[in-house]
Design a binder for these strands. Structure first.
Lengths: 80, 80
DNA sequence: CGTATATTTAGATGTTAGGCTAAATATCAA
DNA sequence: TTGATATTTAGCCTAACATCTAAATATACG
């Protein structure tokens, strides 16, 4: 699957767009993000997976937490 | 439903993005567009509907044909 | 009017996607 | 190593979506 394809798929869901909006303000752990949503962590984890396949976000383990952050370079690529 | 919501939904499908790409080159009738796709006119008609709800395209009857064209202003709006 | 052409609408069907709960994995701290 | 915390993976269910065929609508033309 083409990356642009993955990006469009990722952006199609409102929850995923909201995750991106939150990360726009700075990196957040999965738990911190979950606090902003009425859906389960498991469902969110699925969304992180989709966003990662599109390479829109990156994850990094920090102790017990996993911290997500925006991969800004992709946005520039896709805009063109 | 918000218009931005509709736009994201519309762009999520590859066939719809391809319709937009074709119209980028200029207006086309439903029949002309159909010639470029392996799916039925009925299915395409459904896609036109989605693209119209998002206000990404406009339609105009010309005799027996219905001619579709890009609504370029929306692209500028959503880019911001 | 009656028939042909162009497109849409309606109804049915198979697939994809998002949600949930429960179980698994990974790290930390005692 | 055992227990607690944080997150992901697996399996399932339901709703939404893309597609199809067949029927309906609209225009053109003899």
């Amino acid at each position: 699957m083409l990356r642009s394809e993955q990006v469009f798929r990722a952006l199609a869901d409102p929850n995923r767009r909201r995750i991106l909006a939150i990360l726009k303000a700075g990196s957040r752990s999965a738990g911190e993000i979950a606090g902003e949503f009425p859906i389960s962590m498991a469902s969110l984890s699925h969304h992180y997976g989709v966003l990662k396949s599109a390479d829109l976000i990156r994850s990094e383990r920090r102790g017990q937490s996993i911290v997500y952050s925006l991969n800004t370079t992709v946005f520039e690529d896709v805009a063109s």
